[in-house]
Simulated assay, not measured.
Amino acid sequence: MNGRTGEAVAETRDTGLPEPSEPARPPGTPDGNVTARRTLRTHFGTVVGVAILGALLWRLGTGPLVDGLRRIDTATVLAALGIGAVTTVFSAWRWQLTARGLGIRLPLGAAVADYYRALFLNAALPGGVLGDVHRAVRHGQSAGDIRRAVKAVVLERVAGQLALAVCGAALLLTLPSPVRDDLRTVAVPVALAGAGALAVVLAVRMNQAPGRRTGSLPGSGLLREARQGLLSRESGPGIALSSVVVLAGHLGMFVVAARIAGSGASVPMLLPLAVLALLAMGLPLNVGGFGPREGVTAWAFAAAGLGAGSGVAVAVVYGVLSFVAALPGAAVLVARWAGALRGYPRGAVGASGEVSSRKYGSKFSTRPASRPFPFSTEARDGRPMTPDSV
């Protein structure tokens, strides 16, 4: 019995067929563990942001937060919309200049509309970057070069972060802040290390043969495109000016939020705290911007002797005002969705459902309208998405 049983088992294994209890999966289908890990990575930032908010509200209560939100009136909403209009226009101008430096055409009116839409999607969706991805892909489809369009958006965001780093470091080093002493301690070693690294790179570059200098260093192509997009003579001054104006608008919005939340701290005391809050907003661990910003602001206000509860209230009011400032982006979405549902003028679409090449050029090839959905990153329903069509 045992011998025949062993032979039967061996024959079953030799056939190579899966056991009945473990049905075979189609090729390329991930198992449950892989799917769970992907889901966890996708929603990790949202979960962390919710956890931070929950911990703060549980520890500090909702009293200061509710009081701050109740003080938002019509004048505050109009102020938020005004500041948001200034920062959005200058941000769109910075994007236009960056795209032009990379050789991509982007009219200012189209850039403003797309930037408003991106801000609204960033504020309404988890992660805080989906709107930027959307505008990069849409602009790339309209320009016929998604690769350079994505780089233009990335470089535009990098310009804003560089302005925040430079101006923020100056404010944190000069004005009273909870981190001023620590920054002064590490500022000199960091500056010396950066200068040493730059000197090494330049020395390696100069010691190479002239014919091998171009593109010889790792990342030289990326640095060359960064210079073209951000540091050219035509675009560099405008990008620097727009970045400073945008940063000033964000700092002004924080001061307004502090006054609405009932904080009586002076502006020189609030500016370093605002820089810390803006730095925390760059972390991809938030829900529509909420999360680390509130945690860092609560700690900064407590360290400055202003109260952690007041810091949470200011951060939340700032988030609400920022969302209000991005609301015109919802109007852009609705307007484009309505335009897609209404269709197109006569003569724009031929009998085959394709766009007339006399109007849009022979290089564009589109398919018939299928999904008039405002969040789609594809060409708009039978007509190529171009900056002029905004």
Score class of each variant (00 low, 15 high):
residue 221 G to R: 09
residue 193 A to F: 09
residue 196 G to I: 05
residue 250 H to S: 12
residue 234 E to Q: 14
residue 158 V to F: 12
residue 152 A to D: 02
residue 181 D to K: 14
residue 231 L to R: 06
residue 173 L to A: 13
residue 173 L to M: 05
residue 217 L to R: 15
residue 131 G to D: 03
residue 136 A to M: 08
residue 198 L to K: 08
residue 222 L to C: 08
residue 156 E to Q: 06
residue 188 V to W: 12
residue 234 E to S: 14
residue 134 H to D: 10
residue 174 T to M: 10
residue 174 T to S: 14
residue 175 L to A: 07
residue 197 A to D: 06
residue 205 R to H: 15
residue 192 L to W: 12
residue 174 T to Q: 08
residue 137 V to A: 10
residue 141 Q to N: 15
residue 182 D to S: 15
residue 215 G to R: 10
residue 126 P to S: 03
residue 175 L to V: 07
residue 127 G to S: 06
residue 232 S to G: 15
residue 185 T to I: 10
residue 160 G to W: 04
residue 136 A to Y: 09
residue 156 E to V: 01
residue 162 L to D: 07
residue 235 S to L: 01
residue 126 P to R: 04
residue 202 L to G: 07
residue 239 I to T: 08
residue 205 R to W: 14
residue 207 N to T: 10
residue 239 I to H: 04
residue 168 G to Y: 04
residue 168 G to D: 06
residue 145 D to S: 04
residue 163 A to Q: 01
residue 128 G to V: 04
residue 225 E to F: 03
residue 188 V to R: 14
residue 213 R to W: 02
residue 172 L to D: 04
residue 169 A to L: 15
residue 213 R to E: 03
residue 210 P to E: 13
residue 225 E to W: 01
residue 119 L to A: 11
residue 250 H to A: 13
residue 174 T to A: 13
residue 227 R to E: 07
residue 174 T to E: 05
residue 247 L to F: 06
residue 238 G to K: 02
residue 220 S to H: 00
residue 218 P to I: 06
residue 244 V to I: 13
residue 166 V to N: 04
residue 166 V to T: 05
residue 221 G to T: 00
residue 158 V to N: 05
residue 123 A to L: 12
residue 119 L to V: 08
residue 224 R to V: 11
residue 218 P to L: 10
residue 236 G to W: 05
residue 241 L to I: 07
residue 198 L to D: 06
residue 204 V to R: 15
residue 123 A to T: 09
residue 131 G to M: 08
residue 116 Y to F: 12
residue 173 L to N: 06
residue 202 L to K: 12
residue 184 R to W: 07
residue 165 A to W: 10
residue 192 L to T: 12
residue 145 D to R: 02
residue 222 L to R: 14
residue 225 E to S: 14
residue 247 L to A: 09
residue 210 P to N: 09
residue 140 G to D: 05
residue 187 A to W: 01
residue 182 D to E: 14
residue 200 V to L: 09
residue 187 A to E: 08
residue 205 R to G: 12
residue 180 R to V: 00
residue 165 A to S: 15
residue 203 A to G: 08
residue 123 A to R: 03
residue 223 L to N: 07
residue 154 V to W: 07
residue 227 R to C: 05
residue 130 L to C: 03
residue 190 V to I: 11
residue 118 A to Q: 02
